[in-house]
Amino acid sequence: MPGPVEVLGPILELMTWVGFIPGIPLLIAGWVLARRRCPWTVTTAEVVEAGGFKGFRWSDGDNASHLSLLTAEETKGLETGTEVALHYDVCHPGRWSLGPHRPDNTVMTIGWILTATGMVCTLGGFVLLMF
């Protein structure tokens, strides 16, 4: 019957390749995606009311005026005429948020996890050689 060292060796070898082969290309793809994203910035928006809807009137960095109308349910607690901080995408001003933008890069996260798995399994394989 093979011992644990003989069984663990092929498993670590397999997991090394399973981690590195997709992990490194995913890291590169995630880095490219992160570099291509537009920055978000913040501006002041005024709460307005138009025909039963409330919304935000604001200007972007190019002094272009924008109006975003929402339903009454989405704007509960906002008084007409008040000013709020509005975060928006510089390249696509239609993408906005009342809270700060939290960038996510799922491709890079998966790449880090797979690459780290490959690195740990490689180190484990070297440690296993000592036994």
Results as ranks from 00 to 15, higher is better:
residue 124 G to D: 01
residue 123 L to M: 12
residue 61 G to L: 15
residue 45 A to Q: 09
residue 118 G to Q: 13
residue 92 H to P: 00
residue 94 G to I: 13
residue 73 E to F: 04
residue 33 L to V: 01
residue 71 T to V: 10
residue 13 E to H: 09
residue 103 P to T: 03
residue 120 V to Y: 07
residue 14 L to T: 10
residue 126 F to L: 13
residue 44 T to E: 15
residue 51 G to E: 12
residue 25 P to D: 03
residue 85 A to R: 15
residue 114 L to A: 04
residue 131 F to P: 05
residue 119 M to N: 00
residue 60 D to S: 12
residue 4 P to M: 13
residue 77 G to H: 02
residue 108 M to F: 15
residue 78 L to V: 03
residue 95 R to F: 11
residue 64 A to I: 13
residue 13 E to T: 11
residue 78 L to A: 03
residue 101 H to W: 15
residue 41 T to E: 11
residue 77 G to W: 05
residue 44 T to H: 11
residue 20 F to G: 00
residue 103 P to Q: 09
residue 24 I to G: 05
residue 39 P to T: 08
residue 56 F to Q: 04
residue 10 P to D: 03
residue 48 V to D: 02
residue 4 P to T: 09
residue 113 I to L: 14
residue 8 L to C: 06
residue 104 D to F: 09
residue 75 T to L: 08
residue 6 E to P: 03
residue 75 T to N: 01
residue 109 T to P: 01
residue 81 G to E: 12
residue 43 T to V: 14
residue 103 P to K: 11
residue 119 M to K: 00
residue 131 F to N: 04
residue 125 G to V: 02
residue 117 T to A: 13
residue 106 T to G: 07
residue 95 R to C: 03
residue 49 E to D: 02
residue 46 E to R: 15
residue 28 I to P: 02
residue 120 V to F: 10
residue 7 V to F: 06
residue 111 G to I: 06
residue 119 M to I: 13
residue 127 V to A: 13
residue 77 G to E: 01
residue 37 R to D: 07
residue 104 D to H: 11
residue 36 R to E: 11
residue 63 N to M: 10
residue 121 C to Q: 11
residue 66 H to G: 00
residue 9 G to F: 15
residue 122 T to P: 01
residue 99 G to S: 15
residue 18 V to A: 14
residue 13 E to S: 11
residue 59 S to Y: 08
residue 108 M to K: 10
residue 16 T to A: 12
residue 95 R to L: 12
residue 25 P to H: 04
residue 37 R to K: 14
residue 8 L to E: 03
residue 76 K to S: 04
residue 72 A to W: 05
residue 10 P to S: 02
residue 21 I to R: 05
